[in-house]
C-alpha cells in the first residue's frame, strides 16, 4: 500500500505517474446523478410557482424548497462547465450544454459566463487581479458571509461584478450582454409579478432564496475550499478540509483539492479519488486540514 512514508523518497516523475494513475481510475465516468439532479431540481423549483399560487403548497414551505433549489442549482452546471457530462463533438454534447444552461436558471447566472469565469478561476486561483472569485476571500466564516452580502450591494466591485469584468477582459461582449439580459429578465419578472399582486411570492420563491443560495454557494464553493487563499500554484491554491456540515452539507467541497488537480473527475468521485490520492497529496505538501 502506498503511504506518505513510502513516497517520501519518490521523485517528481514518480509522483506525477502515481497521481495520474489514480486520476485515470476516476475520469470518464458518466455523472448520472448530476444530470438527474439538474432536471429534477429545476422541475421542482418551476412547479413551486403554480403550486404556491394555487394554494396547494403553503408559501413558507415553498420558500424552504426554493432556497434548497437555488442552492443546489450551481453544481450540475459546474459538471457541464468542465465537459464532464459530454466532451465537445461527442454524441451527448447537447445534454452537457442543456444541463449547463438550464440548471443555472434559478440562480440567474448565464452558463457561458459561469464557464468563462470558472475556467479563469482554475487558471489563476488566488491571483488578486485575475481570479474572478478572489473577492470572496475573507478572514473568518462570518466575515465570508458578510463579504458575500457586501459584494452584492449596488456599487460593489466584487462578487458577480467581477464576472462582467472578466468577460470584458476576454473581449467576450456577447457573454457580457447575455449577463445583462439575464439581469433585466430577472428584475423584469420580479417587478411584473409584484405589480400583479404576487410580490410576497416573488420575494420568497426567487429573490430571497437567490440571495441565501448565493451566500451559501460562495461560502462553500469559493471561500471554504480556498481559505486562506494566500498561495498560488497547482498543489497549494486549494485544500481538503472537514466541513461543519459534512461532505453533503458542503456540497462535496471537502475534496475540492481533487477538483482543482483533475477538474474532469465528476463530483461524486472526488471523495474516493481523494482517499486514493491522499498519500501523494501529503508527499506533495498539499493542505489537507483535518481530513
Amino acid at each position: 500500500m502506498t503511504t506518505a512514508e513510502t513516497l517520501a523518497d519518490a521523485d517528481e516523475t514518480e509522483l506525477i505517474r502515481l497521481e495520474r494513475e489514480v486520476a485515470r481510475r476516476h475520469l470518464d465516468k458518466f455523472p448520472y446523478l448530476a444530470v438527474v439532479w439538474a432536471f429534477a431540481n429545476l422541475a421542482v423549483w418551476l412547479s413551486l410557482w403554480p403550486l404556491v399560487f394555487m394554494g396547494i403548497v403553503p408559501l413558507w414551505l415553498g420558500f424552504l424548497v426554493a432556497t434548497l433549489n437555488v442552492s443546489l442549482s450551481y453544481l450540475p452546471s459546474h459538471e457541464a462547465q468542465h465537459d464532464i457530462i459530454a466532451k465537445p463533438g461527442s454524441k451527448l454534447r447537447w445534454l452537457n450544454e442543456a444541463v449547463g444552461h438550464l440548471s443555472l436558471i434559478p440562480l440567474v447566472l448565464p452558463y457561458r459566463l459561469a464557464r468563462l469565469t470558472h475556467l479563469d478561476h482554475h487558471k489563476y486561483a488566488n491571483h488578486p487581479e485575475l481570479d474572478p472569485d478572489f473577492s470572496t476571500h475573507a478572514k473568518s466564516p462570518l466575515h465570508a458571509i458578510w463579504k458575500s452580502i457586501l459584494n452584492r450591494q449596488p456599487r460593489a466591485n466584487g462578487g458577480l461584478n467581477t464576472y462582467g469584468d472578466t468577460a470584458a477582459r476576454h473581449e467576450r461582449f456577447d457573454i457580457l450582454f447575455e449577463g445583462i439580459l439575464y439581469q433585466i429578465a430577472f428584475y423584469g419578472i420580479l417587478f411584473a409579478l409584484a405589480w400583479s399582486g404576487y410580490a410576497i411570492e416573488a420575494a420568497l420563491l426567487w429573490w430571497l432564496p437567490r440571495h441565501i443560495g448565493l451566500t451559501y454557494i460562495q461560502y462553500y464553493l469559493s471561500w471554504a475550499p480556498h481559505h486562506p487563499g494566500d498561495e498560488q500554484g497547482r498543489y497549494r491554491n486549494t485544500r481538503g478540509f472537514r466541513a461543519v456540515l459534512g461532505n453533503i452539507g458542503s456540497m462535496g467541497m471537502q475534496y475540492h483539492i481533487i477538483h482543482h488537480l483533475h477538474p474532469r473527475i465528476p463530483l461524486y468521485r472526488t471523495p474516493k479519488a481523494y482517499w486514493d490520492m491522499k498519500p501523494i497529496l501529503e508527499a506533495r505538501g498539499c493542505r489537507i486540514d483535518n481530513l
Binding site: P154, I180, Q183, Y187, L190, F191, A194, W195, A203, W207
Partner: peptide
C-alpha cells in the same frame, strides 16, 4: 444600460419594494 443599472436601487425600491411592502401590510 449603464444609466439604468446606475439607478438600480431606485428602480428596485419603487418597482419591487413598494408593492412588496403594500402586500405585506394587507397580508
Amino acid at each position: 444600460i449603464r444609466s439604468v443599472f446606475y439607478i438600480g436601487p431606485l428602480i428596485f425600491g419603487f418597482g419591487f419594494l413598494t408593492p412588496l411592502i403594500a402586500q405585506i401590510i394587507v397580508a
